[in-house]
């Protein structure tokens, strides 16, 4: 039955999103617990259904039936039976429950795991690699096949950091830090989500996890570091104009490289991000839409409408599309 249920459960949903198609050791352990508990529980359910069906058919009142059924007070044997058996089933579930809970709560130092500091904001994610000296946002780069230790917190309200395919979530509490480790077994792009109601655009607070081969990750980290120190020069005239606007209007909140504010996502590798604002495909038209009216795309976010002219928007889009580090 365990096998049958595992078969039913697997293959539900999208490969890089579903908890039922685990892509790393943490999600695998959690999936094991899901299958174990749901099979035991399904067994209990079947027993209840079988007895219920039998009783309803066998003991329904027949037309014309009179008399009074025997008034049974109870049965010690039966009552002990359905007290003791659930206890035994609970013990079967409790042992792996405790073992895995402690296993997943282990903390790994920078010798065994890549350290990443996650700060949640309304409604975006900031990722800092303290040992690598990198800050980025929205797209989380990790090496595949390696443990990653996340230290999470929040800048405003409670959010929850969740990459379903890699493992369960942890709350990001303002003023407190939590730790969780995850690992992607294979390179790939995984969905990340905010799981705690955090305001109007809670539903749109998505992020992406880009798991790279370890060598590719190291190369990315190097380029990222270099780009942060000295962003690439702009090539076209439009992009140069965009950069000018960016310096005047955007840099108070957004940083490119080490220059700029920290109130909003760092844009050093913006052109390589999967999505604009975490939700729309990173195409010029959507970037333009976002710059023209951020509230319409993502209600309640903190980016003001700068009332840019279409020309200014186009120039900014040109500039932003040059922000690449990994080519």
């Amino acid at each position: 039955m365990l096998m049958a249920l595992a078969l039913v459960l697997t293959g539900c949903g999208k490969e890089n999103l579903s908890t039922l198609i685990p892509q790393g050791p943490v999600a695998e352990k959690q999936f094991f617990l899901m299958v174990l508990t749901s099979s035991i529980m399904t067994g209990v359910f079947l027993i209840v259904i079988i007895i219920l069906t039998y009783v309803l058919i066998r003991y329904r009142q027949r037309p014309g039936q009179t008399g009074i059924p025997k008034q049974v007070e109870g049965s010690h044997k039966l009552e002990i039976l359905w007290t003791v058996i659930p206890f035994l089933l609970l013990i079967v579930m409790a042992v792996p429950t405790v073992a895995i809970a402690f296993d997943l709560a282990k903390e790994y130092s920078n010798k065994d795991a890549l350290q990443v500091k996650v700060t949640a904001h309304q409604f975006w994610w900031e990722f800092e690699y303290p040992d690598l000296g990198i800050v980025t946002a929205q797209d989380l780069y990790i090496p595949a096949g390696k443990k990653v230790e996340f230290t999470v917190t929040s800048a405003d309200v409670i959010h929850a950091f969740w990459i379903p395919a890699l493992g369960g979530k942890i709350d990001t509490n303002p003023g407190l830090t939590n730790k969780i480790w995850l690992q992607a077994d294979k390179p790939g792009t995984y969905f990340g989500k905010c799981a705690e109601l955090c305001g109007a655009s809670h539903a749109l607070m998505d992020f992406k996890v880009e798991a790279l081969e370890p060598a590719a990750f190291d190369a990315w980290a190097k380029k990222m570091k270099a780009a942060e120190a000295a962003p690439a020069p702009t090539a076209t005239a439009a992009a140069a104009q965009g950069q000018e606007i960016f310096r005047k209007s955007c840099m108070g909140c957004h940083a490119i490289g080490n220059e700029g504010g920290k109130l909003a996502p760092n844009l050093t590798n913006f052109a390589e991000r999967h999505k604009v604002a975490g939700i729309r495909d990173n195409k010029k038209e959507f970037v333009a839409e976002w710059l023209t009216d951020p509230q319409q795309v993502k209600p309640g976010n903190t980016m003001p409408n700068l009332h840019l002219s279409p020309d200014q928007v186009n120039a900014l889009v040109e500039y932003l599309s040059t922000l690449k580090v990994n080519q």
Binding site: T19, Q30, T97, A101, L104, G168, A195
Partner: peptide, 12 residues
């Protein structure tokens, strides 16, 4: 009730 598995279920 299973904490480790609940990390996946919680708030879904």
């Amino acid at each position: 009730a299973n904490p480790a598995a609940d990390y996946q279920y919680h708030d879904t």
